[in-house]
Each structure stands twice: as structure tokens, then as C-alpha cells.
Amino acid sequence: MDQVYLRPIGFAASPQSEHGGAVRLAGGMIYAHRFAIIRRSGAEIVSRTLVSADGMAEALGCLPDDVAADAEAQWGALRFAHPAIQLGERTIRLDQPQIMGVLNVTPDSFSDGGDFLDDPDAGRAHAAAMLEAGAAIVDIGGESTRPGAAATWEGDELKRVLPAVKYCSAMGAAISVDTRRPAVMEAALDAGAHIINDVSALRHDPRSLELVAARGCMVILMHAPGSGADLHANSEYGNVVLDVFDWLKSARDRAVVAGVARERIILDPGIGFGKSLSDNLALLNALPLLHALGQPLLLGASRKRMIGALSNEAPAAERLGGSVALAIAGMDAGVQLLRVHDVAASVQARNVWRGLRDAALTDFSDIPED
């Protein structure tokens, strides 16, 4: 069966710089005026047609019937403005990038494992500092999912996560919990969490789908090639960008069929999970394509090994510059949520980036008058 993909490839600082011939991607601050319509049959790309925003209707009308409806849906998704999400007392707008701060309560996470596990006062202070610095959401994790990490017993994960959820909830924080286990999901939601961030995309335990659907909470579905205990396994791709797109589409549809409301689903390409350096770079360069799935996007690239691979193997604690660079790449792609360890630096980068985008919208100096 042939498949079709609408990939934005040409970007403008503002719609007026293209005399109105640009579309606003996903209701954010990125404008695209040129697109590639890609068709593939199996693993083989059979055509790639370049088209302007103004010429899209005509181009879609020329597509074969077996892909035309999907292409139309993707074109609508690229232009869909995502509404704000309500997380407890907090309203998170998705018309600009938002920062999700990481709070690991684990002994073995690659970056900050052990820093906040047995010291709730330190964890509370870190969460408060992230919120004060401008984090929109705090993401709490009680199990390391780095390559080679040992599985965590459910009871241990509960003991790690629940105190952190409770003290973050007491601060009025919007809370995400990074877990694969339905018992942890349920207890965390009961304790005040608002989002389930599942690196297995609700595949680790079949009960997770039913639980998330019944609770009506937001859920983040992340791409990882492994289906068992090792999420990094089975990492063979025909075309990593298009394969991840198809996988996320299937994960979204599986959740919707199970009763999860589509407007409650966020998608994450899973940078670093079962992907080589070249795979990660290809995905990062192709992030705007994922807006064609019609869901808000999350990017989690902070301090990941690819930064070290490009920086003389800099250790995790010395990857701030690379982390900010990847966060800005996500902003330039229109990603709505950026999961980071260094909140203050990322918020500052976002604010400067936002200033540049705002200024571009009001800069008419190089546009001649009629």
C-alpha cells in the first residue's frame, strides 16, 4: 500500500515576507511556504514533489485516490492551531514553545541520578527553582530508561515517585509522570499528576491503555523500537524519519481506538531511543513533518549522548550548550513542549527566540508598498 507524507521544507520569518503565501504550522510561531509531497511504496520512495503553500490544493487534487484522503488530512493537521491544555490550576498555551523541567528521583539516570532520590528537601527545592525559572510542567521520573539500565520494581518506583508528585502538587505545579506501569500511573494521578509520559507509548502493560482512557488524562506517546523490556532493541529502519512518522501514527490510532481522546495525546519522536547518531540528526532535521500527525509534539533531547558524540564525548553534566542548541532546533521546528534539565537557560533561550519571532511579525521594512 502506498503512503504519503507532507513535509514542510521552506520556512519564512513571517507570513508577510512571503506576501501571505505561508501557513502557520500547528498554530505556533513558525511559518512554512514550501513543502515536499513524498510518496512511498513499502520502503521505497517513489516520488517527491515540491509545491508552494498556494499550490497545495491543486497538487493534492492530482494525487491518486489511495493516498489523497490521508494527504488532505495531513494538510489540515499542518495548519491546525492546537488549543491550550488545562492541567489542574495551570493553563498551558501551545502557541509558543513551553519548557518541561526534569525531576529524576532515581539512583541511576544518566544525567542526575541520585541527586534527589533520598533527599525530598533537595527535590522540592529543585522543583521550585524550575517553576520559578519558568517551567510550565515538571516531569517526574522514577525509573532510568537509558540503554542498559536495569528494570525498576514497581514498589520502588512508587516509593520514589509519589512523594515528589505530592510536593510538586502542593506547589500548584502542572505535573507529568514518566512511567510505563499502570499502578504507578494510577497512584500518581490520584496524588495530583496531570500527564502520563510513557516511553513505551502504552505498550509495556496492556492495562495502561484502559487506565489512561478511563482517567481522561493527557498522555505522551514516545517512539521506541523495542517492545519488551529493552526499548532500544529492534532499531532497524528503512527510512528513520518516515518509519517513526508511521509508528507514531499507529500509536496514536491505537490509543484512540482504545478510548483515549485524540485531543489528549502528545507525540514524542524518542530522540536517543534505539537510534544512531545519524538517525537522531535526521529526525531532528525533519521535526516539522511530525506536525502532519495533528498532535502537539514533545522533544526530549536534553543532555543526551548524541551531544557528547558531537562534542568530544563531553559528559552529561557538560552538555548545556548542545542541549540549548537542540532546544532551539525544536523551537525552529514548531515543537510545543521541550523536556529539559537546564530550565533557566532553556527559558532564557526561548524568550530571546520568542522576541526575534515577534519582531519578525512586525517588520515590514523590506516589503515594498503597492
Rank of each mutant, 00 (worst) to 15 (best):
Ser109Glu: 13
Ile99Phe: 04
Ala127Pro: 03
Leu117Asn: 11
Gly113Val: 09
Gln86Met: 02
Gly123Leu: 04
Ala122Lys: 00
Ala129Pro: 07
Ser109Phe: 06
Leu117Thr: 12
Asp95Lys: 00
Ile85His: 04
Gly88Pro: 05
Pro83Gly: 11
Asn104Trp: 06
Gly113His: 13
Pro97Leu: 00
Asp121Trp: 07
Leu117Ile: 06
Leu117Ser: 13
Asn104Thr: 14
Gln86Cys: 15
Ala128Asn: 09
Ala125Asn: 09
Ala128Gln: 08
Thr91Phe: 10
Gly114Tyr: 08
Gly114Ser: 13
Met130Cys: 07
Ala127Glu: 01
Gly134Thr: 07
Asp95His: 08
Met130Gly: 02
Asp108Thr: 08
Leu87Gln: 13
Phe110Gly: 12
Leu87Val: 12
Ala133Tyr: 05
Ala125Met: 10
Pro120Trp: 03
Ala129Cys: 03
Ala135Asn: 01
Ala84Gln: 00
Ile99Glu: 05
Gly114Asp: 09
Pro120His: 04
Leu103Cys: 11
Ala135Ile: 01
Ala135Trp: 03
Pro83Asp: 06
Arg124Ile: 08
Phe116Met: 09
Leu117Gln: 15
Met130Pro: 03
Gln98Gly: 05
Asn104Gly: 07
Thr106Cys: 13
Leu94Phe: 04
Gly101Glu: 10
Gln96Gly: 07
Gly88Ser: 13
Asp118Gly: 11
Leu94Trp: 06
Glu89His: 01
Asp119Glu: 14
Gly113Tyr: 09
Pro107Lys: 03
Thr91Arg: 11
Val102Gly: 09
Ala84Met: 02
Glu132Gly: 08
Ala125Trp: 04
Ala133Ser: 02
Phe110Tyr: 10
Ser111Thr: 12
Ala84Arg: 05
Pro97Gln: 03
Gly134Cys: 06
Gly113Glu: 13
Gly123Ala: 04
Asp112Cys: 07
Gln86Lys: 09
Asp121Phe: 05
Ala133Glu: 01
Ala129Gln: 03
Gly134Asp: 01
Ala128Leu: 06
Leu103Asp: 04
Ala125Gly: 10
Arg93His: 07
Ile99Arg: 06
Ala129Lys: 03
Asp121Pro: 10
Phe110His: 13
Gln98Ser: 02
Leu103Trp: 07
Gly114Gln: 14
Gly114Val: 08
Met100Trp: 01
Asp95Ser: 01
Ile99Val: 07
Gly114Ala: 12
Ala133Asn: 02
Ile92Cys: 07
Met130Val: 03
Phe110Leu: 12
Ala128Glu: 07
Glu89Thr: 15
Ile99Asp: 01
Pro107Ile: 02
Leu103Ser: 07
Leu87Gly: 08
Gly134Ile: 04
Gln98Ile: 00
Asp121Lys: 12
Gln98Lys: 09
Asp119Phe: 11
Ala127Gly: 08
Ala129Ser: 05
Gly113Met: 14
Gln98Leu: 05
Arg90Gln: 15
Ile85Trp: 12
Asp95Met: 03
Asp119Met: 15
Asp115Gln: 15
Pro120Gln: 02
Phe116Leu: 09
Gln96Val: 03
Phe116Lys: 12
Gln86Val: 09
